[in-house]
């Protein structure tokens, strides 16, 4: 499928806005998961503003597609998208992780419009997504479920239980997207727990596997459409990404998995946003 330049450009604008929203949530001195939120921002923009069926007015619209942030610590990127959908007032962004706030440190379906489940204890979101996919299928719904996984998260055994089960039940309405940034909380996945051969692993478990550059909007859109078109089972999109993408001081660094920026870094981060805006309009 071909995508018009205008669609791609608009989604790039959205991805920049998503990253800008992330910055709004973590001003200098405030600790937040910048790295893993930025790495998946382009995929999230494509999902929420193009691929997924979502209502602008009703976060609980029965005809919606579902997105589960299995790597729940990166919920900032989801809040950034939900704010753009208008599910809550933008002023909430400044109150993330404050006492009894709407935007909790990890996804909380009872607090935040547009959050579909409770996640944060890693390894469980793919199973929850599978349950939703099976439930939707029982109801003969056309809606799809997207699960966002971290590559470090793949060390959780439950992920592979869910991978097997989704394959057994040929859950073609389920799509897992792996944010393959190669860096986890304390170091690179290669150093911490190098499970290797991800493509072959997912394939051998019976999934349709698509490997992409997770920062290339056209590749992202193509992969998501190919996943939709595949009806013999679940699809895994292995998205090569860069942790902290678009913020040079943070790119590829475990330190920014969950850290506070200093004043200088924050200034640079906003300059990066401005530069990207100019580039996309050029």
């Amino acid at each position: 499928m071909e995508y018009s330049q205008e669609i791609v450009k608009e989604l790039k604008r959205k991805a920049i806005q998503v990253r800008a929203n992330i910055l709004e949530m973590i001003p200098p001195g405030k600790v937040g998961h910048l790295g893993g939120s930025s790495s998946i921002a382009d995929v999230m923009a494509a999902l929420y503003f193009h691929t997924m069926k979502v209502s602008r007015t009703n976060p609980k619209d029965p005809g919606r597609d579902r997105l589960i942030m299995s790597k729940g610590h990166a919920v900032l990127v989801q809040y950034a998208c939900l704010a753009e959908l208008g599910y809550f007032d933008r002023s909430e962004l400044g109150k993330v992780k404050t006492f009894n706030g709407m935007l909790q440190g990890h996804p909380d379906m009872d607090r935040t419009p547009g959050i579909e489940a409770v996640t944060g204890s890693l390894g469980q979101g793919l199973s929850v997504s599978l349950g939703m996919a099976l439930g939707l299928r029982l109801d003969k719904s056309e809606n799809r479920v997207y699960a966002i996984l971290g590559d470090g998260e793949l060390a959780e055994g439950q992920i592979w239980e869910a991978v097997m089960a989704a394959s057994v039940y040929k859950a073609s309405n389920l799509c897992a997207i792996i944010d393959w940034n190669g860096v986890q909380a304390t170091s690179t996945t290669a150093e911490i727990f190098p499970i290797a051969n991800l493509v072959e692993k997912w394939k051998s478990f019976g999934w349709n596997v698509i490997e992409i550059d997770g920062h290339d909007m056209v590749q992202i859109l193509k992969a998501l459409d190919a996943a939709k078109a595949y009806t013999d089972g679940p699809t895994a999109i292995l998205a090569h990404t860069i942790k902290g993408k678009c913020f040079p001081f943070a790119e590829g660094k475990a330190k920014y998995h969950n850290a506070a920026m200093n004043d200088e870094e924050y200034k640079i981060a906003w300059q990066c946003i401005e530069t990207m805006k100019r580039e996309v309009e050029a």
Partner: peptide, 21 residues
């Protein structure tokens, strides 16, 4: 749903099913 010998996945999958009613 026979979930195999995988109780952890069974519990979280049940959560997902309940979220669809």
């Amino acid at each position: 749903f026979q979930m195999g010998i995988a109780e952890q996945n069974m519990a979280s999958t049940a959560a997902g099913l309940s979220l669809t009613g």
